[in-house]
């Protein structure tokens, strides 16, 4: 890691002020930042440590929903009885992510900002071309080993996948992030790479995520997070799906359905076309499989990742059928 100075912030305001300095970066759980600093991707001059701030780690769940402080640890949220009861997909997305140790370190705010695992992004000394690191330098991944790259939301400039699990569940259930008084829907937090893949979120300079909120819904309560990967544990998703369903009083007809995908797109991916095609219908296997394929509208293969176009709809379908009692 490049030499940096360490500053332990006494308050959110102090941290915000410190962050206005060029070269300052926030240190929360550190699991992404220190990793990337070792890779030479992140080169902070100052680390502003906010892990000792009080009051940013609370988790509260009531009839309206959940509010979770940005410094709550992934593991705490995963194990929180209220979250597990009202937002099973959220809890599962966390407990299926990383390892127990990393979940004890990584914060919710930091997790939402975790960066891509693209191998080319992570080796700046070997692959100088990376538009995410170095705008305009090109993309080393295109034409390379792309097994873990995105098929949705890609551009000529970048095909790096967003590795998140939690964000996928949050996108499905219309969660929002709070930066002090500013509130942004999770879905709007992330930006597609387009021609500027270095610009990943709508956070402004000095803005600090202070918490997230998840509105309660029947669909969120009746939800699941399904993650498919090569290894049984401790691995990012090859494809994942967060699904929640609310049925009409008849118990069969879909009143509300939420579908989001992970491991396949450049940002956490809400599959509204799938949702639209199933609302008002009675679920059956064929219809669900057909609808799930809509999640891949606009998908582009880059060679090694073409399997994701086949795999992801199957993951979506299984998750929907599971929640519909059909799997």
């Amino acid at each position: 890691m490049r030499d940096f100075s360490y500053f332990r912030a006494a308050s959110t305001e102090e941290a915000s002020r410190a962050m206005l300095d060029a070269g300052a970066m926030l240190l929360a759980g550190g699991t992404t930042l220190l990793d990337l600093a070792k890779c030479g991707v992140s080169e902070p001059d100052t680390l502003v440590d906010i892990t000792h701030l009080a009051g940013l780690g609370d988790i509260a769940v009531d009839a309206n929903g959940a509010t979770i402080g940005a410094l709550a640890k992934m593991g705490e949220v995963a194990d929180h009885p209220g979250v597990k009861a009202a937002f099973p997909a959220v809890a599962q997305s966390l407990s299926l992510a990383a390892s127990a140790q990393l979940r004890n370190m990584a914060t919710i705010g930091g997790n939402l900002l975790q960066r891509t695992r693209c191998s080319y992004f992570r080796e700046p000394g070997v692959f100088p071309a990376c538009n995410k690191r170095n705008p305009g330098s090109g993309c080393s991944a295109i034409g390379g080993v792309t097994r873990n790259h995105a098929v949705l939301g890609t551009s000529r400039a970048c095909i790096a996948v967003n590795p998140g699990d939690l964000a996928v569940a949050l996108v499905a259930f219309d969660a929002y992030v709070e930066m002090g008084r500013r509130r942004v829907a999770i879905e709007d937090l992330y930006m597609l790479p387009g021609e500027t893949p270095d610009w990943e979120t709508v956070l402004k300079n000095g803005e600090i995520i202070t918490g997230i909120g998840i509105p309660a819904s029947v669909a969120a309560k009746n939800s699941t997070y399904l993650k498919v990967r090569d290894r049984q544990s401790y691995e990012f998703a090859a494809a994942s799906a967060a699904v929640g369903i609310e049925f009409e009083a008849d118990g069969k007809t879909v009143r509300d359905i939420r579908v989001a995908l992970g491991g396949v797109a450049t940002k956490p991916w809400r599959a509204r076309a799938v949702e639209q095609s199933l609302i008002g219908t009675v679920l059956d296997v064929e219809a669900v499989e057909k609808a799930s394929r809509l999640s891949m509208e606009g998908a582009v293969s880059h060679g090694g990742n073409s399997y994701k176009i086949e795999l992801a709809p199957r993951v979506v379908a299984r998750a929907i059928l599971t929640m519909g009692g059909l799997a």
Binding site: R117, S119, Y120, V126, G143, G144, V145, R147, N148, D230, R231, Q232, S233, Y234, E235, F236
Partner: peptide, 25 residues
Amino acid sequence: GLIDERFGRVINNNMGDYLVPTNAD
């Protein structure tokens, strides 16, 4: 070992990408 043929380089040169079995496997 995944080789990028353009560079002759092992791309998954770490334990997060070169996967060995975990306890759960």
